[in-house]
Amino acid sequence: MPTLDLTADPIDLTAALVDIPSVSGDEAVLATALQQALCAQAPHLEVVRSGDAVLARTRLGRERRVLLAGHLDTVPVAGNLPGRREGDLLFGCGTSDMKAGDAVIVHLAATLTRPRHDLTLILYDCEEVEAARNGLGRIERELPEWLSADLAILGEPTNGTVEAGCQGTLRAQVRTQGRRAHSARSWLGDNAVHHAGAVLERLTTYAARQVEIDGCRYREGLQAVRIAGGVAGNVVPDECVVTVNFRFAPDRSAAAAVAHVREVFDGFDLTITDLSPGALPGLSTPAAQEFLAATGATARAKYGWTDVARFAALGIPALNYGPGDPNQAHTREESVDISMITRCASVLTRFLS
């Protein structure tokens, strides 16, 4: 079993975490190493295990509680382990998404024995795969009291900036129907792929909304992401399916997003296949304002969906803040700027101590 020194420089700790493979569904070794390290090196923390998630918290009776969360899993390794250091960059699978953030979180949890706020640490499994397997969902069902906090900070890669809330996401299939025929006698058929042009025309002329919430500007977008149709090279197709993805601002509820997409494609056969609500930024709360003051940054909208939405659904203001570069996530060349690890650790230490 690998041995981790949680009091080490977060840069070295990041390298150690990266070198323990933890592809989604295979996080047990890393989770056990972290559990053992927290139990041995952080006696001020209550530590429990949930599947391959590790949870820890203080019980100091502080007025506020801050929850620090990060996922342990990575996408499949792409020939980029073990990690390597080149100048100011640390390369390797999971460096940016999000073991640098995990390293900062566990380092702070272990070394800040008397934080100004009570702390909860959630290191969870299966974030990079389908939502039904996400460890946060299991924790919410089985250990809901562990998800109580006045502010949640998710260590997703943000390049050290504060990204508030997140967009919601909806996927739907828009179907057009026709009639099959031999392509040599096409006048006997009705081409469903040709009818899909009307679907694409609505997307081409769609005017995406922009909305400002808590000083953060969220841009919406409705795009075709896949088209499938056709039976064979000599058959007039009788069905075509256009898959669309709607990224919506967090002031829209999931139900409102569905209603909007149905309105856009009124008259077409539409099936919703995936739906996750967004998260409001919640920047007006005292805990969030205090964190922003500690960073000295101006929060910006999060483009994309993250697990802050799960916390927002529980009524917890949630922010994304981590040392990685989101543009590096999931690439063969994934890396993290080590100076960003130091900076994020410093900011969070200032906020919490």
Rank of each mutant, 00 (worst) to 15 (best):
L352V: 00
R57Y: 11
D266I: 03
S339L: 11
A33N: 02
A254R: 07
T176F: 01
R49E: 07
P281E: 02
A345C: 15
G135Y: 05
V308S: 12
A232M: 04
L112N: 10
V54M: 03
R310P: 01
V193C: 14
L188T: 11
G79N: 01
S24I: 04
Q289A: 02
T349D: 06
E86S: 13
E333R: 11
A345G: 08
E46V: 04
T14Q: 04
D269R: 04
G79S: 07
D307R: 03
S24A: 15
D5G: 11
V308F: 09
R262K: 13
V244L: 10
V18H: 02
P115C: 04
T331D: 03
D274R: 11
G160L: 00
R343Y: 13
G304P: 13
P317A: 08
A299N: 02
L292Q: 05
A8R: 05
T295C: 11
A152E: 01
G267H: 04
T120K: 07
A131C: 04
R133I: 01
L314R: 15
V23C: 13
L67P: 07
A103W: 03
L348V: 02
R114M: 04
F291R: 09
C126Y: 01
P277Q: 13
A42C: 10
C240G: 10
L67T: 06
T7L: 14
E130H: 13
S50E: 15
Y303P: 00
R262W: 08
L188G: 12
A207N: 10
H194W: 08
S276H: 15
